[in-house]
């Protein structure tokens, strides 16, 4: 036993002091707090967890009712309801853009005085804090909820996010171009047009599109509380338990949401990078390009950082 070599070098055995394991008190305390909060929530909430037992069975049952098979005959209705939801999202976003754009300029450092900037930023923050649905509930109470007021609710919500993204993008513009324009004697508006906008434009345009993607989801939700469109059709059929129609509506919601995300994402990519990159096409093209490259020069996988030394 003693003749066999040990990992410890002979003579050096345990002369080195091993460090003590750090205690990490703060981390443990934080964990304790988190666990306590979660346990308290489970403990206090008014839920009979036993109901979860037959959840899987129930879920399976309802999924069967929805999708085996879905009511394909309602597809045209579902699609036209979806068009209304998309229109709501588009109109709301467009209105939001029109309102938020000048406001975000007025909230940008260097373009407007503090007295204008801070109140505007506070308004943006406030609008972002109120969920769109709550805005819609207020609309519902004051003007009645229609597709148009739903779009208005989306517009108000958009102003909060777009306003913030806008002034952040404008402020992120590298000072050099602005300075150059100012130095050449440009007015504030000219500085904006030729110093700031060209640099911020791609990002801002992409934000508008991204906000449209969010609005599409929001408009489906607003429908659920009565603003019309696919959401309205969904909630009606859920309440009357017409599950196969609910099934087809869910399929439409999922497919349309994904489709719009894809299209909008592709356009955003084009705006930011200046190149088209269509998901499927690109994947195919990339694959064939890789194959071709490997044919030509097998060393692209070379991991050697010193490959420059090859003579």
């Amino acid at each position: 036993m003693s003749a066999a070599p040990t990992l410890v070098a002979p003579g050096r055995a345990t002369t080195q002091d091993r460090p003590r394991k750090p205690a990490n008190v703060t981390r443990k305390a934080l964990w304790l707090v988190v666990v306590a909060v979660v346990v308290a929530a489970f403990w206090g909430v008014d839920i009979s967890w036993g109901a979860l037992w037959d959840m899987p069975g129930k879920l399976w049952h309802y999924l069967g009712l929805m999708f085996l098979p879905p009511a394909w005959s309602k597809l045209p209705d579902a699609l036209s309801a979806t068009m209304l939801s998309v229109a709501m999202a588009w109109f709301g976003t467009a209105l939001g853009v029109v309102i938020s754009f000048p406001l975000s300029l007025l909230a940008t450092r260097g373009l407007a005085p503090v007295a204008v900037r801070w109140p505007l930023r506070a308004v943006f923050a406030l609008l972002r804090a109120v969920p769109e649905v709550v805005i819609a509930v207020l609309m519902l109470s004051v003007t009645g909820l229609t597709a148009f007021t739903g779009a208005l609710a989306i517009a108000i919500g958009s102003v909060g996010t777009l306003g913030k993204w806008g002034y952040e993008a404008f402020e992120a513009v590298d000072g050099g171009a602005t300075e150059a324009a100012t130095a050449a004697g440009a007015s504030r508006a000219q500085v904006m047009r030729w110093g700031v906008w060209p640099n911020a434009a791609p990002e801002v345009l992409a934000f508008w599109l991204y906000r449209f993607e969010i609005s599409v989801r929001a408009s489906a939700i607003l429908g659920l509380i009565g603003a019309g469109g696919i959401g309205k059709m969904l909630i009606d059929n859920i309440q009357f338990r017409v599950w196969d129609v609910v099934g087809i509506l869910m399929i439409v919601v999922v497919v349309v949401t994904m489709l719009i995300d894809q299209i909008s994402g592709t356009v955003r990519h084009r705006i930011i990078t200046g190149r088209w990159e269509v998901p499927v096409v690109t994947a195919l093209r990339r694959r064939s390009a890789r194959a071709a490259r490997l044919e030509a020069s097998p060393s692209i996988l070379e991991d050697d950082s010193r490959s420059g030394t090859v003579g």
């Binding site: 489906a220 509380i225 919601v253």
Partner: peptide, 26 residues
């Protein structure tokens, strides 16, 4: 698929399936 369904839609369905209350919400 899970991600493209909005929260309020999940809620509407669960309310019908397991009843109103916090369980549907959770």
């Amino acid at each position: 698929v899970v991600r493209s369904i909005p929260d309020l839609l999940y809620a509407s369905i669960f309310v019908t399936v397991v009843g109103t209350g916090a369980l549907s919400g959770v």
